[in-house]
Design a protein around this nucleic acid. Sequence first.
DNA 1: TATGAATGAGTATTCATTCAT
DNA 2: CATGAATGAATACTCATTCAT
Lengths: 218, 218, 218, 218
Amino acid sequence: MTWKSVSRTVGPVASEYPSLSRGEQTRARLLEAAVEVLERKGYHAVRVDDIVKAARTSHGTFYLYFANKEALIRDLIEEVAAEFAQIAAALPHLDQSQASVVQLRRWIHEFSAVHSRRSAVVRAWTEIAAPGDPAAALGRSVLSMFVVALGDRITALHPECTAATATLTAATIVAMLERTNYYVLTGHLRSDQDAVVESLARATYAIVAAQTDDRPPR
Amino acid sequence: MTWKSVSRTVGPVASEYPSLSRGEQTRARLLEAAVEVLERKGYHAVRVDDIVKAARTSHGTFYLYFANKEALIRDLIEEVAAEFAQIAAALPHLDQSQASVVQLRRWIHEFSAVHSRRSAVVRAWTEIAAPGDPAAALGRSVLSMFVVALGDRITALHPECTAATATLTAATIVAMLERTNYYVLTGHLRSDQDAVVESLARATYAIVAAQTDDRPPR
Amino acid sequence: MTWKSVSRTVGPVASEYPSLSRGEQTRARLLEAAVEVLERKGYHAVRVDDIVKAARTSHGTFYLYFANKEALIRDLIEEVAAEFAQIAAALPHLDQSQASVVQLRRWIHEFSAVHSRRSAVVRAWTEIAAPGDPAAALGRSVLSMFVVALGDRITALHPECTAATATLTAATIVAMLERTNYYVLTGHLRSDQDAVVESLARATYAIVAAQTDDRPPR
Amino acid sequence: MTWKSVSRTVGPVASEYPSLSRGEQTRARLLEAAVEVLERKGYHAVRVDDIVKAARTSHGTFYLYFANKEALIRDLIEEVAAEFAQIAAALPHLDQSQASVVQLRRWIHEFSAVHSRRSAVVRAWTEIAAPGDPAAALGRSVLSMFVVALGDRITALHPECTAATATLTAATIVAMLERTNYYVLTGHLRSDQDAVVESLARATYAIVAAQTDDRPPR
DNA sequence: TATGAATGAGTATTCATTCAT
DNA sequence: CATGAATGAATACTCATTCAT
């Protein structure tokens, strides 16, 4: 099973949109080329020259469509951020029901699929992440969407939890989801993707459930 | 409570080691200065010039001690990698006993403390880690120490687990530990550090324990 | 009489080739500028900065056309090497006839003319020629063209000569031709150029002729 | 037969002069080391660091004995220049006698022997040779000693020769002697050294003798 | 007399961005 | 719309020389 089987397939390449105006096609070609180069060389090695070569256009044209190199990358990241925001918004309610378990697994699958489909951009995003960089701020905002959504579910399930605890637990889970997928996309972790989703779903449930328990002894 | 209260306190500054030879002092000063600059500007914005200014020395001196900028950073990363390797080696056995719970919490505390104490270097490490970079390889190797150690504990506790499942679960936990701490050090997550440790310990236990459960329904 | 009167005159300056594309003009301007600077300061004192200033262009532009400083010099040397190869190929047959004598003198004149016209590059070539340098290898190959050509003529005239002796004698003559011209271009030897050619032609003939003599007594 | 068999053997190494004061030994060691490095890397690649390492001493010590790098090289070149001056002064008289022939051959042998024995320095000298460099001036002065000496012999033999012609012919011969030996020491010409001397002696005689001839036809 | 750490001026090279065509 | 030549600021790195010990 591949990620693409469930998630919306990767966007069509520019050339498949003959309806776009010439300028729009060029812009799309540049974005595609940037992703390709990002995939091959990683963010910090990307040169405008690489991108325009891959897009079979010129430096001058590049600056016709993007204010500068960062602007292009930002566009890509914003696209991905929007996809993640959608995922965050679609987090199912959690309860003990079987339906809920199935939905959560499906949701994690979606999350992982976006990670995988957009791996080049996700990796670039991680590479940038210097404090102060606008990309970091965007990352923080996406992160908080997930944390808030998950925190809500935890609070719903465990009304006795303080907001702080719920948030903290939610952050813990998001960290796990995010980083485990990152391990997969960087090749640090080689594993069948269904197994990864399964493992993450199980762990997520375990963590959420553990909130009910008494505090562990010190 | 601060991280330093438990973990070995951060090394004294170069000037506190009058016993070092002049050259060794200079080298130490450069390393310290690099950490300071790293903290302020992040890896990719570091200039040799910044480092030598912070170390109150000259360009020539820098190249007396380090082949180039990357070599210095590599040295720092290797130091931190060694610290993490020690942590990985010290992972306690896990069982249902109270002692074990306490030890795990303490261990996570240590892990988090290194993360915190070495935050500038850890962040630089994350920023570098492009695939193919030697730093990425080192990261992978440290990661696998943690995964192996945790996998062992899981297998010991759940002999019925396949190796693959144990590894996957272990990776999931490491991802959570690593990334949650990263959220803290980048300021994405603002929380009392004891609470973070508590949350991570609880989650780790929950995940490990969840391995015994029957597979969740699909 | 100047060298130019006989040999093909020195190439027109870049500005005289409005037919060249802009880029080709710039490249030509850089080559010309390099020769000019080489003339003034000698190879080891040449700075990229000098060249771009003389060419009234920028550092960036320099690297648009040449991978580095050495590459530019190499291009110049290869041009000159090709000219010398042509000269070597044009060595006339030698016999006792008057026609032959005249041709040889003309040939030496050509050789000297190239030396003179390309003096800056020839001098740079000499300065570089450290063993192992590619320029030295090129020098060796050009040298051997001359030695082979002259050796052939000697063998034709003196079939009783061993190949080794012919080669050695040829090398001796080439050394004389090359170095005498070098003395002239460096100003070590100040003499009317016709007289130099005359002297070299006479010496060459004398050396070739001396091969027939019995071995001198020991 | 090796060059050393006839010429004064190469100077003893520093360590063989225990009678020298410590300082004098160090100085000698530096000079020796410089020659060794020159041999290995050629003039322009010589670093003070290489020399002091080879001499097993320190940078500070280097500057105790030599004002700067050039001064050391200049010392070496001056030594060699003095040797060549001696050679020039010892040029035998030339006439048609057998004794004269033998003496010339012996003299060329000496010349070649110094070239060979001092090859590293000679090569460095050639590499420097930028116009304006003091080494070039010294070269010019040594050259002129040879030219004057040879010119005298030519004039003695051919009183009808103008001074200019004699000088020019002499320069031609010196060029041949110098450059042929250079070809040998750089490996451009691989030949038995006796054969080289033989060839040079024969050529020199031929050139000198050719002065009596009528001018060749135009 | 010797050391070797420190210095900093000097130089090559890269690459995002501009602009004339 | 598109081009690609030109730009120059930014930056890493070298190495002869000095100087405190």
